[in-house]
Write a protein that binds this DNA or RNA. Structure first.
Lengths: 120, 120
DNA sequence: AAGGATACTTGCGGATTGCAAGTAATAAAG
DNA sequence: CTTTATTACTTGCAATCCGCAAGTATCCTT
């Protein structure tokens, strides 16, 4: 569980955002959260098939980055519920822009059922 | 020259966009293009310091993906100029959203000189 | 023609990825 | 109460990818 306080490559806001979000999986987990997913299995069950070790690491990184927070389930069972923080919800426009671009320029893409317009 | 032909993980437009853009460097190269950068030197000289082998591969991938195109420089010299295609320019809102999020939520970030508002 | 700049390519050690399998803690079934 | 299933991860490991340094090819000035 290395939390090495990953160093910032530059003061550029885009570079800084990519230090946290810049990989093939992180924004997909965020997409699932915007779709309404809350639990580990919601993310692991997405059609892209994220490896579980990657998922666990990305969830921890997003928590460390203040984008999501995890809390115990209300029924006292073991599973955790992951929810977007205000900072995480502020990523809505990023995901909406990516989705719109993909829909417009990548043939054969379509929004998955359950993914709403991405604006809260 | 590795022929990309990278397979699509799902028909989700976000996943599809990340198949092309989902890493720590690609969107930084795009940022430089939106700033007005055109040449290899412009990208390699950015403060994040992209390794040159990564840069060459990303440029080739972006050309293959139809996001940029390379042509002979306007001034008649031999080096190549990389420019955004229409598809590439359509990524403006993605970069603008990332920049705005970084500025709002990551302390100490600031837009770099030369980077305009991101809208044409 | 020599020296420098530009645009890459190559090599290599180490980090990261993805797949499979394992594990611990409930939960459900018998 | 014991067995079996489910959930949420962790671990091991081969393959891939990354970043750094160095090298190469081409043009560009002098």
């Amino acid at each position: 569980m290395t939390t090495p306080a990953r160093s910032r490559r530059s003061p550029c806001p885009v570079a800084c955002a990519l230090d946290l979000l810049g990989d093939r999986w992180t924004l997909l987990v965020l997409r699932d959260l915007f779709r309404g997913g809350e639990r580990y299995r919601d993310f692991a069950g997405s059609p892209e098939g994220i490896p579980t070790n990657i998922l666990a690491e990305r969830l921890a990184r997003l928590v460390a980055g203040g984008v999501i927070e995890s809390s115990a389930a209300a029924d006292g069972s073991r599973h955790r519920a992951y929810r977007l923080t205000t900072k995480g919800r502020a990523l809505g426009p990023v995901l909406a822009a990516l989705r719109d671009w993909g829909l417009a320029w990548e043939k054969g893409t379509r929004v998955m059922p359950g993914l709403s317009a991405g604006r809260e």
